[in-house]
Amino acid sequence: MSNAIPVTRTRRKAQTPEERRRSKIIQISLGVVVSIVVLFFAYLAQQTNPAGAFIILVGTGFGYTLQRSRFCFTSSLRDPLLTGTTDLTKAVVIALTLASLVFMALNMQKFGMDLKQLEVEKALGNVLPIGLHTAIGGFLFGIGAVIAGGCASGTLMRMGEGYAQNWLAFVFFVFGSMLGTALLNLMKTSPIFWTGTAVFLPEVLGGWIPAVIVQFGALFGLYVAADYWGKKKAGAL
């Protein structure tokens, strides 16, 4: 399911089978060229960064996966509201659950089961300050992602797919980021907007066990809610 709202094309010239075959051969050949370009960038990155080639290839894997699976965070939140489908929402919850298991294991190894060696700033994954700025930022981001037809990863992915709308959104995403950086710098001077405190659940809840119960309980709750909503909208309940 594409994130861009499908616009039905009324008049589109039908291709003859011959034209279709030629276009297919050209596209696949260009695909081979792009994979060579990827390898070239990997080689270039390796010259300055010991993990450079690996990072470029992982990034390419992200793009390939996002495109092939139509996995999109914005759609996962928007589709339940617009069309009532929650298949993608459930897939996002599954991904967040799997990732939670892995990050939990990595941070358990790093900080110990008793959190004796805990230093929140060193946690693997982004454990970052929360405050009013998070709420305002998330809210604005949600509006923007839905009307622009793609979140951050989705915008980059659809740029690769050839959507002009996402190229334009990207340009303004960049300018918006400059405005946002300045605005955050201003907010940081006010304790109302900026507390600077990162909240790591195992630390505030008093250990891994309560954190695991809260984290996976909430994820399970989300999954059940998404499943229920999808069935209800489809008229199965």
Partner: peptide
């Protein structure tokens, strides 16, 4: 939609210290 959405995402992502991926 692209212009407005892009600007809002940019501001939002910086305020929240990350986008749908980072945050």
């Amino acid at each position: 939609a692209a212009v407005l959405g892009g600007v809002l995402m940019g501001i939002g992502a910086r305020l929240a210290l990350g986008c749908n991926i980072g945050s």
